[in-house]
Structures are given as structure tokens and as C-alpha cells.
Design a protein around this nucleic acid. Structure first.
Lengths: 162, 162
DNA sequence: AGCTTTGGATTGACATGTCAACCCGGGAGG
DNA sequence: CCTCCCGGGTTGACATGTCAATCCAAAGCT
């Protein structure tokens, strides 16, 4: 499509066309993310972080998890989770409680308030995903999006190892 | 591909497969964004926000812009820009100065330090984009990514107007 | 002139993230 | 026993974002 020129020194740098696609792609996914977040916020008074935590706890046996386990499950650093749990606890969405088996650790429990907030948020959130993401794409494009995500993820994983 | 069931009430909600793609897509773009940001930070001591501001100023006539103009150019709210400029000014990357033609307004000027920081960041940043994004995709996938971004953007724009 | 409105920009309060330092309860070795 | 380290978790400092309120000068309106 676009020919490499000597200026690009053996394809170390993207071409103008590649760069245009990059900017479109990253800016658009950013807008999408913030639009979904803003729907979630206005329709359910939850942030994406709240939603991720509540989803994990809702699906956990006995609606509770160890803090580290939870962090690993949603892919967060423990410090980030600790700060976030503090804010959620102030709002009554979760409760922290000393762990029975390991005096060092903490168990995170879903409260009735948290369970109810999550229940009420699910349908509107899924609807927003359909309206803003799924409905924007043709079936082919949707499949392509899945493949692109998989390819990016695989590539990032190999680079991480190194 | 996946049949809608009565449970989904006329396609209001995404199917399980659509949801899986959504999660893959949004999580992966998030990881990609943060990996690029972290390369920029470690290689050039700039945040993506710093980069956007410096890029706009570098390309502006006389390397200066009105604050609102800059905000519109990079698509930020003015309050966000004001906070960010405060931090950049403390680091000496930009300078704010009363506007000659409109006493209310401020002109944002690129400093020598800022220009130098931006110059040094460009090549590593573009290299990261190639390595982490462009190189992860086949040429077809790259084109598809561009089309997906365009479709999403167009869809979001129509929804914004309403 | 006097009053309201508008537009440009900053500010403060607060949510969210990252990073590094810390606290604290167990072990492992001596 | 004592020390050193390790793993779970919290904390503090600070960067980044959003939202609503504010400030101030310029325009309109009466």
C-alpha cells in the first residue's frame, strides 16, 4: 500500500499511513472506553473499577475472595486494589475482614448493597456495550476485532517475557 | 454465527460471543496503551499527555497556541489542559504568557527544554508504536483496524449528537 | 451608566493510578 | 532465641482526570 522509503531505515519506524491508523485506533478506543464508563456512571453510579470488582465477587464462591486472589483475577496491582477497596468500603459496597486461615491476609466480602448495585448495573451496562460497540460494527468487523485483539495480545505477551 | 435467543429480547443485549470479543478488545487495547505509555515514560520521561501537548506546540506556527485552541486541537477539556499545563510549566516544558490581543486569554509557548524533550522522544516513541502495534498485525489486520476505528468513531459521533 | 450574559481560563474537591516505602506475621538458618 | 528475609497488605506522595464553581474582562441590553 505505502512504500517504505530509505528515510525509514529498514522499517524501524511506521509509515505515515501506519501512523494514521495507529492514531485513529488508539484515540477511538479511548473515546469508546470513556463513553461506556460514562454510561455506567450515570446509569448505575459505578466506575469500571467498581464493576470489575463487583463482578469478580459476585461470581466467587460465597461471594468473597482473598485480596491477592482478587487482584490477580482482575489483573490489578495490589496497591491499586487496596486503594480502590478503601473507597468501595466507604460506600458500603464491600467489606474487608480478617482472614480466618492466615492472620496476615484479608478477605473481601460482597455486601448486600454491593450485590444490589451490581445487579442493577448489569443490564444497562450490557446494553451500552451492544449499542456503542457491537452495533457499530458489521459481523465481519466484529470477528476481525476479535482477531486483532488476539494478535495484539499474543504479540505483547511475547514481548513481555523478554 | 451465534443465534439470538429469546432471553436477549430483540438483541438488546450482546450474546456471549459478542461479550467475549468486547472484553478481549477493550482489555487488550488497554494493555497496549499502557505499554506504549510506559515505554514513552522510561525512554523520554514524558507522559502521553505531555507528548500530545508538545506535538501540537511543535507543529504550531511560532510554536505557540492559545489555550483553548490547544485544547480543541488535542480534544481535551480546558480544565484538564489547565491542570496539565500547570504541571508541565513546573517542569519547564512550556511557558504561559498573557495574550497580546485578548487580555483574558493565555498563550502557551514551547520552551527550549520542551522542544528538546520532544525531539528526543519522537524516534523511540514511533519505534514503540511499530514494535508493539504495527508489527503485531498482518497488513490485512492493520487495514481492518483502521476500518474498525472509523466505523466506531462514526457510530459514536451519531450517538453523541442525539 | 448599570446590569446581565458570554467566553477564556483557573481553581478546588475528589476519583483514579503508579511507585516506592512501610508494617507485620511467619518461617529459615545460625 | 535471634536475625534476616518473604509474602500479604497498606500507606503516602504524587500524576492524571472529571465536575462544578469561580474569576475576570468584554459585549450586549436597557
Amino acid at each position: 500500500m505505502t512504500k517504505d522509503t530509505p528515510r525509514q531505515r529498514g522499517r524501524q519506524l511506521p509509515t505515515a499511513e501506519e501512523l494514521r491508523i495507529w492514531r485513529d485506533f488508539i484515540e477511538t478506543t479511548d473515546v469508546l472506553r470513556s463513553r461506556i464508563a460514562s454510561r455506567l456512571q450515570s446509569e448505575s453510579a459505578l466506575s469500571p473499577g467498581d464493576y470489575a470488582v463487583l463482578l469478580a465477587l459476585t461470581e466467587a464462591p460465597e461471594q468473597q475472595m482473598r485480596s491477592s486472589e482478587l487482584a490477580a483475577h482482575i489483573g490489578w496491582e495490589r496497591s491499586r486494589l487496596s486503594h480502590h477497596l478503601g473507597r468501595m468500603e466507604r460506600r458500603g459496597l464491600i467489606r474487608r475482614q480478617e482472614c480466618a486461615t492466615d492472620p496476615r491476609g484479608a478477605e473481601v466480602h460482597l455486601t448486600a448493597v454491593g450485590a444490589e448495585a451490581f445487579r442493577g448495573s448489569t443490564v444497562p451496562h450490557l446494553r451500552a456495550i451492544r449499542e456503542l460497540f457491537v452495533d457499530a460494527l458489521t459481523p465481519d468487523q466484529l470477528l476481525a476485532a476479535g482477531e486483532i485483539a488476539a494478535a495484539l495480545r499474543a504479540h505483547l505477551d511475547t514481548r513481555q517475557a523478554k
